[in-house]
Design a protein around this nucleic acid. Structure first.
Lengths: 334, 334
DNA sequence: CTGAAAGCGCTTACAG
DNA sequence: CTGAAAGCGCTTACAG
């Protein structure tokens, strides 16, 4: 392999093979049957390409084709299983579909989301998937102005199709199950985590309320605590609740593993003191939490299915706006 | 915002502003003081750009500048805290340094690694960081032929600088701590997970052996089980060990959180049966595992520091090959 | 203070 | 069966 100091181009290859750039291009792109290029020439070109470590310049290709072959995704964070499996699955699907995936995390920051969307537009993405975006409609407008379609995942938007979990039903089932585990007649039930402003949190609260209603349990407003997703926020909201109630709730619905991380130290403190510990539910899943926290019930979102549907929408390219809800799975150790 | 059906170019902007593409280019790139363009014109151009949702075509820029502004990273997986925080931190650093980050996961598959490296080369990355790569030297050669520098992270290579954890010392400290916790005179100690072929695993085994040696504990070869990283592999290797020894070890050194996931069910089974449970150590960190598994000691790798050093090497661009080891942190609940 | 023009490395009608 | 040439949207000397 002659270490060419500078990058090899199709012109170099053409010269080496005694042919033209057009022909090399056709060979590289596998169009040589169509162009009826002799097999011998094609083989020769491919050999030379291999030998010189030739890599097609994708920017040049994108420029001339006027399409990049890139699809983008923005994600709030990588540091939990839900979003990281979304990122990983998105990559795999994109590659299988012949696209190059670009994913970027925007820390639930609206400004960063917009900046990331602009950057992706600069790279001429052919699709932008907004995962858990705080303002997907704004991103949609940005992309629409550039003629780029968007799709929403996890959190819905109103201007493009969305694939989300069955938040209401998932929360309903989870709460029902927790009530059974709890056993008490009039348990003190608390919901914690998430944002009142986001659709998923609202739907989950609705499911939570409904399950309690079915059991004729009245729920005080002070027991619904959409304090944000961050671990610290959930931790301190929980601590505050405990202080003002002089004790822990009987049943605790936690709205994400991130929030669960913040609450766990408090739960452990209770356990260490030999005090009663609330029955725990979490609308989210983590393998260690599921395995090691006593009596926790977790809701696993069906990432595989969500991505299949998402890519189905992408290839369909319909401009009808749909909102598709995907069933969740309840996981507990018993 | 007039929804232009087609993308706006600098020529469109030039026409609109009654000036030339060169001038627009200078304004967009913030070089207009240098070009002494009138502030009025500059402002006007920027307004128009905003109004039309203009986004510089980065492929065109890359092509003409002959540099892409992209840096790439390959990572084995996203689905654990170590690698996902590496990916997240890489993104942040890249952006701060004015680069566009591309990260791709290659599932510890040598062929995928090479394919991903080729794809990145096609996108003209200016640096490729190989994280936990099975054959970083092969990727280095590929990149070197295209004049692209590489850097290794987590697992070292011999042809480019590497930033890795202090595997030997980390394992030594961890094992010492486990021995203290264990308390027994002649504990049965087992090492599980990882690959004999990788540097980190070998170094950790060395640290493990050394700590045992210091305590005059002889260690049988059958107790060193580098069975791979996958959870299932670790699970079955552990089960096998237990079967042939009619019991569990006293001390178990697990080489990653992934392997820990595979072993946990067995540990729980023991606990449920009221049988003795080994003292657990893990060369890796996960917040839930750290919090919820009784008496586990975890080694946290210093991702923040590793990335700082990595980017330091990148900006330095020295062609001296260094291998830098970063201290790890021991975490336990007491 | 500003513009015309060449060139980056491809693709793709088009002509032979 | 194959090549010359225009064009994709920028940047950057160069000339004024």
């Amino acid at each position: 392999m002659p270490d060419s100091p500078k990058k090899t181009t199709i012109y170099d290859l053409a010269q080496l093979a005694g042919t033209s750039a057009s022909t090399v291009s056709a060979v590289i792109n596998g169009n040589w049957k169509k162009r009826r290029i002799s097999e011998a020439l094609a083989t020769r070109v491919l050999e030379l390409a291999e030998e010189h470590g030739f890599a097609l310049n994708m920017q040049a290709r994108a420029l001339s084709r006027e399409k990049s072959g890139i699809i983008g995704m923005i994600v709030p964070m990588y540091d939990n299983r839900y979003f990281s499996s979304i990122a990983q699955g998105f990559e795999a699907h994109a590659r299988d579909a012949g696209y190059f995936p670009i994913v970027t995390c925007t820390r639930r920051d609206p400004e960063l989301e917009v900046a990331a969307a602009r950057a992706m537009l600069g790279y001429q993405v052919e699709l932008l998937v907004c995962t858990g975006a705080t303002d997907p409609d704004r991103i949609h407008d940005l992309c629409a102005a550039a003629g780029v379609p968007t799709l929403n995942l996890d959190l819905p938007g109103s201007k493009a199709s969305s694939v989300i979990s069955e938040n209401f039903h998932g929360a309903l089932d989870l709460t029902r199950k927790l009530l059974i585990q709890c056993g008490k007649d009039m348990p003190e039930a608390v919901f914690i985590g998430g944002r009142q402003s986001d659709h998923n949190t609202r739907e989950r609260i609705r499911g939570f309320r409904q399950a309690l209603g079915e059991a004729d349990i009245t729920i005080r407003d002070g027991n619904i605590l959409p304090c944000g997703y961050a671990a610290e926020k959930a931790g301190s909201a929980y601590r505050l609740w405990q202080q003002s109630h002089h004790g822990s709730p009987d049943l605790l619905f936690v709205n994400s593993t991130i929030s669960l991380e913040g609450i766990l130290p408090e739960i452990e403190k209770l356990r260490a003191e030999g005090a009663g510990v609330p029955i725990l539910g979490c609308f989210d899943w983590d393998p260690f939490a599921a395995r090691t926290i006593d009596n926790i019930v977790m809701v696993k979102q069906d990432v595989k299915r969500m991505l299949e549907i998402l890519f189905g929408l992408f290839v369909k390219q319909s401009d009808e706006i749909e909102q598709i809800e995907v069933a969740t799975i309840l996981e507990s150790r018993d």
